[in-house]
Amino acid sequence: MLAHPAHFLSQGFGSGLSPVMPGTAGTLFAWLSFTVLSVRWPQLFTPVNWGIIIVVGYFLGVWACEITGKNLGIADHGSMVWDEIIAFWLVLLFITPAPFITQCWAFIAFRFFDMVKPPPIAYFDRKLKGGFGVMFDDIVAAFFALLIFALWRNW
């Protein structure tokens, strides 16, 4: 993880090295970091700044996941969780402020779409390769989690 800055980033600052369900560990890291940063420094971690962080983080993730995937010999290695982090930050950006239970449901919805990969997520997961592919399918999973919330809130 410390051999290259891309590994440190793509492996979620170490959260992706969890021996059990690294993607879930990365998503939990995303949730914790979003909450702590937003509460501790609300004047800095505003919705606009989170949007900028997510966009920049996405493109950094494409670069980092490309390098890490090549170095590990597996394009979408399980320890690479930056894609989950960026995607779940996106979910949290659109649903917060929200009660803890709502955030729990957002976590469950996002993990469902990320793990099960229903169409079209599975299509993008199969067809798009490299760092872009690693990052993009999780953004689509985030979109579907947000779509569920939009439908639920308007029901």
Rank of each mutant, 00 (worst) to 15 (best):
H7I: 00
Q43C: 01
A64M: 08
T35E: 12
S33Q: 12
P19W: 11
G12S: 08
L72A: 05
F94A: 07
N154H: 15
F100Q: 09
I101C: 00
A142N: 04
K70P: 00
F45W: 15
T102R: 15
I108S: 01
N49M: 14
A150K: 15
G14S: 08
W152I: 09
I67S: 02
P119F: 15
I52E: 01
P120H: 12
S15V: 02
Y123P: 00
T102C: 03
A106N: 03
F136S: 00
S10F: 04
A150T: 08
P97Q: 06
F34M: 09
G14M: 08
V36L: 13
A3I: 08
G130H: 13
A142D: 03
P119W: 15
R126T: 14
T27M: 03
F88W: 13
P99L: 07
G78Y: 07
A6R: 02
S15M: 04
P120S: 11
W31H: 03
I139G: 00
T46Q: 10
P42D: 04
F149V: 02
L147H: 06
T102K: 15
F94C: 10
L44A: 13
I74D: 12
K70I: 10
F59Y: 15
T35V: 05
G69N: 05
N71P: 00
I101F: 14
V55F: 14
S18K: 12
S15D: 03
V55I: 15
A145N: 05
S10Y: 03
A98I: 05
Y58Q: 07
D114Q: 10
P42V: 09
P97F: 11
M1S: 11
F124H: 04
C104R: 04
T46G: 09
H77P: 02
G23L: 06
P47D: 13
L2S: 14
L147A: 14
I85K: 02
F29A: 10
I108N: 03
R40E: 11
G130T: 10
K70H: 13
I101D: 12
G78T: 04
R40M: 15
A145Q: 02
A98T: 03
L93Q: 06
D83K: 11
W82R: 00
F45H: 08
F34D: 04
N49R: 15
R40H: 12
V62T: 04
I86W: 01
I86K: 02
P5T: 07
T46Y: 13
F8W: 15
